[in-house]
Design a protein around this nucleic acid. Structure first.
Length: 584
RNA sequence: GGCGUUAUGGUGUAACUGGUUAACACGCUGCCCUCUCAAGGCAGAGAGUCCGGGUUCGAGCCCCGGUAACGCUACCA
């Protein structure tokens, strides 16, 4: 991708970037994007289009071309950046999402998945699903299937992926280790990477001393230039090595973020990233770049948290001599307090939303609202097209594909606000025909599958079938909230009880929901904290069911599901905490 | 601490190339409808656009300087 910059013009900073390869034909359509670079680098862009003869358009002529539309900007006050794009004759659009199977599928993944999906569908491109399972310490076996199920539930079907195949497989990084090893060898050979032999403990100590000295914690580069003799010595010692990226000592790396413009990092602030871990698996950075290139990814649409590591990726592309993809960094979904969305403060598992009875269309619509992208209808449009005012907020996936505009995305991190999602889900529910509404109930909260798992839990406990409702109401409720007289054991204070409930939550988070694992894990906690099994289980029962009498606890927990159980506990703790604060 | 990104009501977003009184939706309050509750209809409260300067007849939008929040700062992604 040739990039040309031109210098100052008429005392203004003017940048020209030729973003795509010139066409071979002499005449072509040129889009001028005039970008007003404000202090915030938010771009207000206007596109002009006219035909020119390519050969007559040398860089030097750009200022003259600019004069063609002098009314569009005020040269005295505005820094402009001119971006010229020729129609692309380049490869078809290919995008991807690359979730990591480390737990429940995350709404953030769904969000980025939706964006990638729309982007591909809008441009007749391909949407690829790749599983980034290079961290075996956090690997959760059941996670991959849950990711597939959740994305399918949402209707974000992928064109290539581990389960559907494709021309650029395998699509699981754990099955591509040979590829990464070969590429690491290339980097080693070309001097863009080196082996380093420090132990994790040594690195840890180094970091701590740097922090203590108020220095930025960075790899000190001690092994950047090891002699063959030193290497031999380390090897003889039996030390294992990692491979690190050899970031140039001086200079800086810039890249273009499609939403923000040019972002620059000085090499002083780019660490010698580990590319190949001592277990032979690559880190995200290496695997990601290699795969994106090999899979012919043209647009990397990912969350904003990756901006800081993008220079490492750019350095890698350069080291391999590969063309850069376009980078689009999307705003991060937030909790109500504006921190990055997290399970502590929000239900974050897509499974939770499915099992709590949200419709996939509603969740998709709500995610599409995050960050803008869809133009709000103007007052005239509402009148002229007879739109409902809510049409500004309610739109289908098809509608998003039709009119979602990536350049409109607003960069402030949107708060993922359940209240509005609930309203929206209600809108979708009401819009259903009675038949479909009934069908939706039967597919989810009253599915045969769910009911048939609940039924055996109460069969021996009821005398009339009508008692089924009393006994099992908590399975069908959005939330329960036991009062202290229900959840508070005689032998413990409120404070102790809440602290213990928090411990239970931690244990449940780390345990898979089967009787074999749940029971010993909870009992172990009880022993450690000196809580009787009775009190231990009763507390959990109260939180889950809102009552002191219920079907067997562990089985209920399992049937109710991990995602919703954890959410119920978090909400309980949250509410109690608020109440405690009020009392103060 | 360092680096990066961002900044409009409580929340999500609008506001064309600077141009009246900053718009829409959610939420909130009240009223109407109604056996109740929702839904629906109507009305209302809630921001002067993070702060401070500047340019301009005029700034949410342009310029300069701050501040804050968030992200990254791992052999996690």
């Amino acid at each position: 991708m040739p990039r040309i910059r031109c210098g100052r013009v008429a005392n203004r900073r003017l940048g020209l970037e030729l973003l795509s390869s010139p066409l071979s034909s002499s005449l072509c359509i040129v889009n001028y994007l005039i970008r007003y670079r404000t202090r915030r680098e938010r771009s207000r862009a206007i596109t002009h289009q006219f035909a020119i003869r390519l050969w007559s358009c040398s860089i030097q002529h750009i200022p003259n071309l600019l004069q063609l539309t002098p009314s569009l900007y005020h040269p005295a006050t505005i820094n402009t950046e001119l971006i010229m794009t020729t129609p692309t004759n380049s490869a078809p659009i290919r995008v991807r999402i690359a979730p990591s199977p480390t737990g429940d599928p995350h709404v953030g993944t769904a969000y980025i998945g939706l964006l990638n999906f729309i982007y591909a569908r809008q441009r007749g491109g391909q949407f690829v699903l790749r599983i980034e399972d290079t961290d075996r310490t956090r690997f959760v076996a059941s996670s991959e299937q849950m990711i597939f199920d959740s994305l399918r539930w949402l209707g974000l079907n992928w064109d290539e992926g581990p389960d559907v195949g494709g021309a650029y497989g395998p699509y699981r990084q754990s099955e591509r280790t040979e590829i990464y090893r070969e590429h690491v060898e290339m980097l080693l050979a070309s001097g863009h990477a080196y082996r380093s032999y420090e132990t994790p403990e040594e690195l840890d100590a180094m970091r701590k001393s740097q922090l203590a000295a108020k220095l930025p914690p960075r790899y000190n580069g001690a092994h950047r230039e090891l002699t063959p003799a030193q290497i031999a010595a380390f090897e003889a010692e039996g030390r294992v090595s990692v491979v690190r990226l050899k970031v140039p000592v001086e200079g800086e790396t810039s890249f273009r973020d499609e939403l923000r413009g040019t972002v620059t990092f000085s090499h002083n602030n780019v660490d010698d990233q580990v590319l190949l871990k001592s277990d032979g698996f690559p880190t995200y950075h290496l695997a990601n770049v290699v795969d994106d290139h090999l899979m012919r990814i043209t647009d990397v649409i990912r969350a904003e948290e990756w901006i800081s590591s993008t220079p490492k990726h750019v350095l890698l592309y350069n080291a391999f001599g590969w063309d850069l993809p376009r980078f689009w960094h999307m705003p991060l979904l937030r909790n109500l307090d504006k921190s990055k969305i997290s399970k502590r403060k929000n239900p974050v598992s897509v499974i939770y939303y499915r099992e709590s009875g949200y419709l996939p269309q509603a969740l998709l619509n709500f995610l599409g609202l995050m960050g803008g992208g869809m133009a709000q209808p103007t007052a005239e449009e509402i009148v002229s097209k007879g739109l409902n005012v809510k049409d500004g907020d309610i739109f289908s996936l098809a509608k998003m594909i039709e009119s979602f505009d990536f350049k409109r995305i607003s960069l402030g991190g949107p708060v993922f606000d359940l209240t509005k999602l609930k309203w929206m889900n209600g809108e979708y529910l009401r819009a259903l025909s009675p038949e479909n509404f009934f069908a939706a109930l039967r597919e989810t909260i009253f599915s045969d599958e769910y009911l048939s798992r609940i039924a055996p839990l109460v069969q021996t406990r009821i005398e009339t079938l009508a008692q089924f409702g009393d006994m099992t109401d908590f399975f069908f409720k959005d939330d329960v909230m036991p009062p202290p007289e229900v959840f508070l054991p005689k032998k413990h204070t409120l404070e102790e009880t809440l602290a213990f409930a928090a411990e239970q939550l931690t244990v449940l988070e780390a345990t898979s929901f089967t009787t074999e694992e749940l029971e010993p894990a909870l009992k172990k906690l009880g022993v450690e904290k000196e809580w009787s099994v009775k009190d231990n289980f009763m507390l959990l029962r109260a939180i889950l069911t809102g009552k002191t009498a219920s079907p067997p606890l562990l089985e209920s927990l399992i049937v109710f599901g991990k995602a919703r159980s954890l959410d119920r506990m978090r909400r309980f703790l949250d509410t109690q905490k608020k109440l405690a604060n009020q009392r103060k």
